[in-house]
Design a binder for these strands. Structure first.
Length: 443
RNA sequence: GCCGUCAUAGCUCAGUCGGUAGAGCGCCCGCCUGUUAAGCGGAUGGUCGCAGGUUCGAGUCCUGCUGACGGCGCCA
């Protein structure tokens, strides 16, 4: 058995360090002896020949186990191995066109590390049942691809911010006051006072720009709305950025460069995975940071072409967004909503907010909401009072306007929303490891 | 908060006019040396979401409840 210690780096079963290599690398090891650790993905028995498809984090490969070519215990172990049992395999890598991927491992030894009796997922398991056992559903190759691409998205976003000289900061999740008026908050007992889970880090990022000027954060945000839609979670990954000395025009420029950088990077680095989701990598790879911009008024006109009953002054509902997004191939900005339907902290010009939402094409909804912030103390106080909010709770926020206020802007980007649009996922839940919705906080 | 749909085996579903609960897949057993979520044979598997009501008789009809799902609103 000396040859095998070569591949385990002297580590034997029972005291495993790291795997020597991963399934995706086997194509470069034709003719070599290899050791594979993984999980049984598929099994097909043919009497004296058994095929086991083994899965690890990097991919899958077919193992052929022939009676007579392996010790009798190995053949019996293969015969008995359940779907998703963890196994250790020794064998020789061979090219074989009959195997998926063109590579197969001819087994010389197989042992079950731990069994997996009655694994509950099978071909026709429905979406609700899959969510009930999300902790097991994550093992699917589709979930693997989504999780890997989500990491790629976050990595690309951080690259962008880093390249633009932003500082990453780490704002609190436990909050004493609401971030945005109106939205429902999750509350909890905080040593006898009521505290809330953050809906947005924006207000705290605004404080940070007076120190670091350009900042961003990636935090969970919570919305206690019973939103039963395919684009809402009660907990989501929120990229937020805030920039001092920045007007709305430059704010939009940063947003489109950010989204474009992310798309370019994914188009280049995840071309194969994008194709698995029927997406054209070239569309993302070649995207340019020149998104179209339309005014809210123009959006209303476009909507009225097909929905004459839609009235000026209303917010764009989902049906309206869907109509609107059919006019665009790439994400686009809708600018200058009426102040009456936007948040108190936005800068006001006439009856309009100095703001823009970035909409994904194809009815996938709003990816980014951003605005120039109100930097004038009196206007801000009047706005907070008009919302019926207690000014005292916002004293610290108002201090930011009392001590060296600056023009500044910022935005928030929903990570799962962006990923959902890129992969055209049916539901935002699929873009999340353990999605939290009004009816689900388990598992 | 509002509107709608659904709830039967581990999973996906069928169940006619109200008359003793069905299929496929999975699990289990047997056969099979090139399969691609293999194939063939056998066996197992049920508080029909819960509580009432109508009826000689309810998975089926009626009432209430619960839960999940889908859509709206809200937003990222």
């Amino acid at each position: 058995m000396g040859v095998w210690t070569l591949h385990t780096y002297g580590v034997t079963r029972g005291s495993i360090a790291l795997k020597a290599y991963y399934i995706k690398d086997l194509a470069e090891k034709i003719g070599q002896d290899v050791e594979i650790y993984g999980w049984v993905y598929r099994k097909r028995r043919h009497g004296k020949l058994i095929f086991v498809v083994v899965r690890d984090s990097s991919g899958i490969v077919q193992i052929s186990i022939r009676k007579g070519s392996v010790p009798e215990e190995s053949f019996e172990a293969a015969k008995a191995a359940d779907i998703e049992s963890s196994i250790r395999v020794l064998g020789v890598v061979k090219e074989d066109e009959r195997a998926t991927g063109g590579v197969e491992v001819a087994c010389t030894m197989l042992e079950v590390v731990a069994p997996s009796p009655d694994f509950p997922i099978q071909e026709d398991t429905g979406p609700e049942a899959l969510l009930d056992i999300r902790h097991l559903t994550l093992r699917s190759t589709e979930s693997q691809k989504i999780m890997k691409m989500k990491m790629g998205l976050v990595k690309a976003a951080r690259e962008f911010f880093d390249g633009e000289g932003f500082y990453e900061v780490f704002p609190p999740i436990l909050m004493g006051v609401a971030g945005e008026g109106g939205g429902t908050l999750f509350s909890l007992d905080y040593f006898g006072q009521t505290a809330y889970l953050s809906q947005t880090a924006q207000l705290h990022l605004e404080a940070a720009i007076f120190s670091l000027e350009n900042v961003y954060s990636l935090t969970p945000s919570f919305r206690a709305e019973k939103s039963r839609t395919r684009r809402h979670l009660t907990e989501f990954s929120h990229f937020e950025a805030e920039m001092a000395w920045c007007d709305q025009k430059e704010n939009e420029g940063i947003q489109e460069r950010l989204v474009t950088h992310i798309c370019n990077a994914l188009g280049e680095r995840y071309a194969g995975d994008l194709e698995c989701f029927d997406q054209d990598p070239a569309y993302f790879r070649d995207m340019e940071p020149t998104f179209e911009r339309i005014l809210y008024d123009e959006a209303v006109s476009l909507i009225q072409e097909t929905r004459p009953d839609f009235c000026f002054g209303a917010d764009l509902g989902f049906e309206e967004e869907k109509v609107l997004t059919e006019h665009f191939e790439y994400p686009f900005f809708v600018q200058r909503f009426p102040m009456s339907i936007k948040a108190f902290y936005m800068k006001q010009e006439g009856d309009r907010a100095v703001c823009a939402d970035l909409e994904a094409p194809g009815g996938y909804g709003e990816i980014i909401g951003g605005s120039q912030r109100e930097d004038d103390l009196e206007s801000l106080m009047a706005r907070i009072a008009a919302e019926g909010e207690d000014l005292e709770k916002y004293e610290w926020y108002l201090d930011l306007r009392r001590y060296g206020s600056v023009p500044h802007s910022g935005f928030g980007m929903g990570t799962e929303r962006l990923l959902r649009w890129i992969l055209k996922l049916d539901h935002i839940r699929s873009a999340c490891l353990f999605p939290r919705t009004p009816a689900r906080v388990y598992p």
